[in-house]
Design a protein around this nucleic acid. Sequence first.
DNA 1: ATTTTTTTTTAGGTTTGTCTAAATTTTTAT
DNA 2: ATAAAAATTTAGACAAACCTAAAAAAAAAT
Lengths: 220, 220
Amino acid sequence: MNLSTSEENYIKAIFHLQTGGQTVTTNALARELLARPASITDMLKRLKTKKLIHYQPYQGFRLNTEGRRVALAIIRRHRLWEYFLAEKLKFAWEEVHAIAEELEHVSSRKLVDKLDEYLGFPKFDPHGDPIPDMNGHMESTHRVCLADLPLHTTALVCQVSNQSPEMLELLRHKQIAIGTRLEARRKFPFDNSLEVKIRQHPAVHISEQLAKNIFVTHDA
Amino acid sequence: MNLSTSEENYIKAIFHLQTGGQTVTTNALARELLARPASITDMLKRLKTKKLIHYQPYQGFRLNTEGRRVALAIIRRHRLWEYFLAEKLKFAWEEVHAIAEELEHVSSRKLVDKLDEYLGFPKFDPHGDPIPDMNGHMESTHRVCLADLPLHTTALVCQVSNQSPEMLELLRHKQIAIGTRLEARRKFPFDNSLEVKIRQHPAVHISEQLAKNIFVTHDA
DNA sequence: ATTTTTTTTTAGGTTTGTCTAAATTTTTAT
DNA sequence: ATAAAAATTTAGACAAACCTAAAAAAAAAT
């Protein structure tokens, strides 16, 4: 199936939003893609006719098996290019994402597999995210500290390194516990503080010091 | 200036057609791009408002200085990616063009310059075409087509102008590839066909049509 | 110097992917 | 249970990039 850049970006965004078993909402996807909800509805109809998603009007949507296969192929390309840019071309960690966003849409299967081989079949990209292999399989989870979690990626809290009562009090206040699914919405470069969103809670603001003591795993 | 993939393809095609000092015609460009003349006219108007071409209705058109600058940047990207694909990923030389057609539209200046550096600032791509440097300068090639090569002079195959699968099949059959060292032994005036000798191979017979599509450089 | 042919442009339509504004459905709150 | 709010979808527009068919201009042929 031949997909446009736009269609690929939608597939990828849905994949990232539908972690766990939830359906994705129109508004969530609109926020993720910086587009209007009406545009999302338009594209959903197209992706449904292409049989890549389950979608019933007003009921949310999910990728189906084929959609997930496509998403993993895109993510594979993205992360391999990120690895190439950082490892071979010596780009800084934070520069690789934007360029990989463009390169990932070059979809020659042979190119991707040869690139993979050239890079030595890496398992993780420079952000610590696992790279799907030729069959769409990837290393299950990988721990990152919350301060290093890429923005707009949902993750599960899996460990808290500092166990002081003061920190636990703060965590309780922020409604964060082991197993909480959260997403870093925004980073304020002035103090590296984070705005973090937990489902069904208002966004909370977290200092860099706290973020460095919270470890998360990417939920596949 | 931000150009679409389509705009870039037009610019590139005009650049290739306007060799020497001629203006390019609508029909010639339509043939080159496999599009209808009406579509060409549409795009020419857009490129004119973007100040990349000289264009007066019915009078043909040419790239202006800025247009040539843009074209050379695109060609630089194309040829660097071709070099990367052949040299690093070990693609066969006839496979690289199609993939480079896609990669060339990723326009990060920093990416291209870092790639150039990573590759060791190559001067020629796998087809023997010169690669423009960061300033748009490139080695001038003193290429001759095989049909014009004097008899009993050895030369290196550096470019093949027609990239059709039919021609590539024929070249493989004759054991001719980029870099092959060969010598024209005899010319038959009846059909201008050539007897060509390649080291360690029996002499082969080549039609005028094929000879006109093979370019060589005198080996120093 | 006309007529014919070829080339080029214009006019109007299509698809993709976006938008705004309005209508509808679902959810939440009273 | 109903009203208010929020989420979602529909309706209608627009730009990019293509198309076909017709008109206009230029070139070639008689």
